[in-house]
Amino acid sequence: MIAVISGDLIKSQKIPQQEYDDMLYQLDQSLRFIASKFNGRFSVYRGDALQIQLPDPTDVCCAAVLLYLQLKSANYSLRQSLAVGNLDNPRADIKTATGSAYTLSGQGLDTMNQRLLLQIEHCPLDTSFALNIDLIDVLLDKMSQKQANALFYYLTTHNNSHSELAKELKTSRENVTKLLNLAHYQLIERFLNYSKHTIAQQLKGVTT
Protein backbone atom coordinates (compact mmCIF):
# COMPACT_ATOMS: atom_id res chain seq x y z
CA MET A 1 0.00 0.00 0.00
CA ILE A 2 1.05 3.59 -0.65
CA ALA A 3 -0.14 7.06 0.29
CA VAL A 4 -1.28 9.79 -2.08
CA ILE A 5 -1.81 13.46 -1.30
CA SER A 6 -3.98 15.51 -3.65
CA GLY A 7 -4.12 19.21 -2.96
CA ASP A 8 -4.49 22.71 -4.28
CA LEU A 9 -3.66 26.23 -3.17
CA ILE A 10 -6.56 28.13 -1.67
CA LYS A 11 -7.65 31.30 -3.50
CA SER A 12 -4.71 31.07 -5.90
CA GLN A 13 -6.85 32.74 -8.58
CA LYS A 14 -6.64 35.93 -6.54
CA ILE A 15 -2.84 36.03 -6.68
CA PRO A 16 -1.72 39.01 -8.83
CA GLN A 17 -0.36 38.01 -12.23
CA GLN A 18 3.06 39.47 -11.47
CA GLU A 19 3.34 37.19 -8.41
CA TYR A 20 2.11 34.01 -10.10
CA ASP A 21 5.55 32.81 -11.23
CA ASP A 22 6.84 33.24 -7.68
CA MET A 23 3.94 31.11 -6.42
CA LEU A 24 4.71 28.34 -8.92
CA TYR A 25 8.39 28.42 -7.97
CA GLN A 26 7.61 28.18 -4.25
CA LEU A 27 5.19 25.30 -4.87
CA ASP A 28 7.79 23.44 -6.92
CA GLN A 29 10.53 23.94 -4.33
CA SER A 30 8.26 22.83 -1.49
CA LEU A 31 7.22 19.69 -3.35
CA ARG A 32 10.84 18.88 -4.17
CA PHE A 33 11.71 19.12 -0.49
CA ILE A 34 8.88 16.78 0.52
CA ALA A 35 9.68 14.31 -2.27
CA SER A 36 13.34 14.23 -1.23
CA LYS A 37 12.62 13.87 2.48
CA PHE A 38 10.08 11.06 2.09
CA ASN A 39 11.40 9.39 -1.09
CA GLY A 40 8.23 10.41 -2.90
CA ARG A 41 7.22 11.62 -6.35
CA PHE A 42 5.03 14.55 -7.29
CA SER A 43 3.19 16.19 -10.12
CA VAL A 44 1.72 19.69 -10.57
CA TYR A 45 -1.28 20.30 -12.81
CA ARG A 46 -3.69 23.15 -13.54
CA GLY A 47 -1.04 25.48 -12.18
CA ASP A 48 -2.01 25.30 -8.51
CA ALA A 49 -2.99 21.64 -8.02
CA LEU A 50 -0.67 18.84 -6.94
CA GLN A 51 -0.34 15.15 -6.26
CA ILE A 52 2.33 13.41 -4.20
CA GLN A 53 2.92 9.66 -4.06
CA LEU A 54 4.63 8.34 -0.93
CA PRO A 55 5.99 4.78 -0.67
CA ASP A 56 5.55 4.62 3.12
CA PRO A 57 1.92 5.37 4.02
CA THR A 58 2.82 6.07 7.65
CA ASP A 59 4.60 9.25 6.47
CA VAL A 60 1.50 10.82 4.97
CA CYS A 61 0.48 13.11 7.85
CA CYS A 62 4.07 14.25 8.43
CA ALA A 63 4.49 15.06 4.75
CA ALA A 64 1.19 16.93 4.61
CA VAL A 65 1.88 19.03 7.69
CA LEU A 66 5.41 19.94 6.55
CA LEU A 67 4.16 20.88 3.09
CA TYR A 68 1.45 23.04 4.61
CA LEU A 69 3.91 24.79 6.91
CA GLN A 70 6.45 25.42 4.17
CA LEU A 71 3.85 27.00 1.88
CA LYS A 72 2.25 28.92 4.75
CA SER A 73 5.72 30.33 5.48
CA ALA A 74 5.55 31.86 2.00
CA ASN A 75 2.01 33.12 2.73
CA TYR A 76 0.16 30.49 0.68
CA SER A 77 -2.60 28.32 2.11
CA LEU A 78 -3.15 24.73 1.03
CA ARG A 79 -5.85 22.09 1.38
CA GLN A 80 -4.88 18.42 1.14
CA SER A 81 -6.76 15.16 0.74
CA LEU A 82 -4.69 12.26 2.10
CA ALA A 83 -5.40 8.65 1.20
CA VAL A 84 -3.82 5.28 1.90
CA GLY A 85 -4.57 2.47 -0.53
CA ASN A 86 -3.28 0.32 -3.34
CA LEU A 87 -1.24 1.28 -6.40
CA ASP A 88 -2.52 -0.77 -9.33
CA ASN A 89 -0.66 0.73 -12.28
CA PRO A 90 2.61 2.53 -11.48
CA ARG A 91 3.64 5.15 -14.02
CA ALA A 92 6.71 7.30 -14.53
CA ASP A 93 4.33 10.27 -14.59
CA ILE A 94 2.14 9.84 -11.52
CA LYS A 95 -0.69 11.80 -13.18
CA THR A 96 -1.43 8.62 -15.14
CA ALA A 97 -1.02 6.15 -12.26
CA THR A 98 -4.11 4.36 -10.97
CA GLY A 99 -5.17 2.63 -7.79
CA SER A 100 -7.44 3.07 -4.81
CA ALA A 101 -5.01 5.51 -3.14
CA TYR A 102 -5.37 7.86 -6.11
CA THR A 103 -9.13 7.39 -6.34
CA LEU A 104 -9.76 8.07 -2.64
CA SER A 105 -7.43 11.06 -2.58
CA GLY A 106 -9.00 12.67 -5.65
CA GLN A 107 -12.56 12.07 -4.49
CA GLY A 108 -11.72 13.51 -1.08
CA LEU A 109 -10.34 16.70 -2.60
CA ASP A 110 -13.52 17.18 -4.63
CA THR A 111 -15.76 17.05 -1.56
CA MET A 112 -13.68 18.35 1.36
CA ASN A 113 -14.36 21.64 3.14
CA GLN A 114 -11.35 21.62 5.48
CA ARG A 115 -7.57 21.81 5.04
CA LEU A 116 -6.75 18.23 5.97
CA LEU A 117 -8.60 14.98 5.28
CA LEU A 118 -7.38 11.39 5.63
CA GLN A 119 -8.95 8.18 4.30
CA ILE A 120 -7.62 4.63 4.54
CA GLU A 121 -9.00 2.01 2.17
CA HIS A 122 -11.28 -0.56 3.85
CA CYS A 123 -10.52 0.95 7.24
CA PRO A 124 -12.63 3.72 8.80
CA LEU A 125 -10.45 6.00 10.90
CA ASP A 126 -10.37 5.38 14.61
CA THR A 127 -12.58 8.01 16.28
CA SER A 128 -9.75 9.49 18.32
CA PHE A 129 -7.49 9.66 15.25
CA ALA A 130 -10.18 11.47 13.25
CA LEU A 131 -10.67 13.92 16.11
CA ASN A 132 -6.94 14.59 16.30
CA ILE A 133 -6.82 15.36 12.58
CA ASP A 134 -9.73 17.80 12.96
CA LEU A 135 -7.93 19.56 15.82
CA ILE A 136 -4.67 19.81 13.87
CA ASP A 137 -6.68 21.21 10.97
CA VAL A 138 -7.91 24.02 13.24
CA LEU A 139 -4.40 24.74 14.57
CA LEU A 140 -2.96 24.94 11.05
CA ASP A 141 -5.76 27.23 9.93
CA LYS A 142 -5.10 29.69 12.77
CA MET A 143 -1.32 29.67 12.42
CA SER A 144 0.41 32.86 11.29
CA GLN A 145 3.09 33.00 8.60
CA LYS A 146 5.88 33.55 11.14
CA GLN A 147 4.62 30.79 13.42
CA ALA A 148 4.49 28.36 10.49
CA ASN A 149 8.02 29.28 9.47
CA ALA A 150 9.40 28.74 12.98
CA LEU A 151 7.57 25.42 13.33
CA PHE A 152 8.76 24.22 9.91
CA TYR A 153 12.37 24.87 10.89
CA TYR A 154 11.82 23.24 14.29
CA LEU A 155 10.46 20.06 12.69
CA THR A 156 13.07 19.80 9.92
CA THR A 157 16.31 21.02 11.54
CA HIS A 158 18.59 18.42 13.13
CA ASN A 159 19.67 20.68 15.99
CA ASN A 160 16.35 22.33 16.77
CA SER A 161 17.16 23.90 20.11
CA HIS A 162 15.53 27.30 20.39
CA SER A 163 18.90 29.04 20.54
CA GLU A 164 20.09 27.36 17.34
CA LEU A 165 16.80 28.11 15.58
CA ALA A 166 17.18 31.74 16.61
CA LYS A 167 20.47 31.88 14.69
CA GLU A 168 18.85 30.26 11.65
CA LEU A 169 15.86 32.59 11.73
CA LYS A 170 17.94 35.65 12.64
CA THR A 171 15.87 36.53 15.67
CA SER A 172 16.06 36.12 19.44
CA ARG A 173 15.68 32.86 21.31
CA GLU A 174 12.78 34.41 23.24
CA ASN A 175 10.99 35.21 19.99
CA VAL A 176 11.51 31.68 18.67
CA THR A 177 10.06 30.24 21.88
CA LYS A 178 7.09 32.59 21.66
CA LEU A 179 6.39 31.70 18.02
CA LEU A 180 6.67 27.96 18.66
CA ASN A 181 4.40 28.12 21.69
CA LEU A 182 1.79 30.06 19.72
CA ALA A 183 2.06 27.39 17.02
CA HIS A 184 1.42 24.68 19.65
CA TYR A 185 4.61 22.97 18.51
CA GLN A 186 4.63 20.27 21.16
CA LEU A 187 1.07 19.21 20.34
CA ILE A 188 1.79 19.09 16.61
CA GLU A 189 5.02 17.15 17.13
CA ARG A 190 3.15 14.66 19.32
CA PHE A 191 0.46 14.34 16.66
CA LEU A 192 3.00 13.56 13.94
CA ASN A 193 4.52 10.77 16.03
CA TYR A 194 1.04 9.53 16.95
CA SER A 195 -0.08 9.54 13.31
CA LYS A 196 2.79 7.30 12.17
CA HIS A 197 2.08 4.78 14.92
CA THR A 198 -1.69 4.85 14.42
CA ILE A 199 -1.58 4.43 10.64
CA ALA A 200 0.83 1.52 11.05
CA GLN A 201 -1.52 -0.12 13.55
CA GLN A 202 -4.58 0.43 11.34
CA LEU A 203 -2.79 -1.04 8.33
CA LYS A 204 -1.96 -4.16 10.34
CA GLY A 205 -5.68 -4.62 10.81
CA VAL A 206 -6.27 -4.27 7.05
CA THR A 207 -3.60 -6.79 6.03
CA THR A 208 -4.29 -9.45 8.68
Rank of each mutant, 00 (worst) to 15 (best):
M1C: 12
M1W: 10
I5F: 10
G7L: 05
L9H: 09
K11I: 01
Q13D: 13
Q17G: 10
Q18M: 11
E19P: 07
L27H: 12
S30L: 05
R32V: 08
R32Q: 14
I34R: 06
G40H: 14
R41H: 11
R41S: 12
F42G: 09
Y45N: 07
Q51M: 09
Q53C: 14
P57I: 14
T58S: 13
D59V: 14
D59F: 14
V60G: 07
A63H: 06
A64S: 13
V65D: 00
V65T: 06
L67S: 09
S77I: 07
L78W: 02
R79Y: 03
S81G: 09
A83G: 08
G85N: 08
N86V: 12
N86A: 14
P90D: 02
R91N: 15
R91S: 15
D93K: 14
T96Q: 15
A97Q: 09
S100T: 15
A101E: 11
Y102S: 11
S105H: 05
Q107W: 01
Q107M: 02
D110G: 09
D110F: 02
N113E: 13
L116D: 03
L117E: 13
L125I: 07
F129N: 02
L131R: 11
I133L: 09
L135D: 04
V138G: 12
L140Q: 05
M143I: 01
M143G: 00
S144I: 05
S144M: 04
Q147N: 05
A148Y: 04
N149H: 10
N149F: 00
F152I: 01
T157F: 12
N159G: 11
H162P: 01
H162I: 02
A166K: 05
K170G: 01
T177P: 07
L179S: 00
L182M: 11
Y185Q: 06
Q186P: 06
L187W: 15
L187V: 15
E189K: 12
L192Y: 00
S195K: 07
I199F: 01
T207P: 09
T208E: 12
